[in-house]
């Protein structure tokens, strides 16, 4: 059975760590990183990458447009 696997790429330097993406994620994939970017923001990252389904919800609510989303069909 085919299933989808997703992934996001965060533009770390532009992320402001606002956390708006976090409740938008149905899979609870995203957390803020321990590290900070050049501006001093804890940036979003995939804390639980295996759960990502590439639904793009995070990206479409991201006010700064820093999230790029990929999705691939894989065999289960």
């Amino acid at each position: 059975m085919a299933k989808v696997k997703g992934s996001i790429v965060v533009d770390i330097e532009k992320c402001k760590g606002c956390e708006v993406c976090m409740p938008a994620c149905p899979q609870d994939v995203i957390r803020l990183a321990e590290e900070v970017n050049g501006k001093g923001y804890h940036y979003a990252h995939m804390a639980n990458p295996d759960a990502c389904i590439g639904c793009a919800n995070c990206a479409i609510v991201c006010p700064d447009g820093v999230i790029t989303v990929y999705r691939k069909k894989v065999d289960a």
């Binding site: 696997k5 990206a59 820093v66 999230i67 790029t68 989303v69 990929y70």
Partner: peptide, 17 residues
């Protein structure tokens, strides 16, 4: 499947306009 396998142009779902 690795993250690199997914993050490929052909798998792009959404990017900033």
């Amino acid at each position: 499947i690795t993250n690199n396998d997914i993050v490929q142009e052909e798998n792009l779902v959404y990017k900033k306009t």
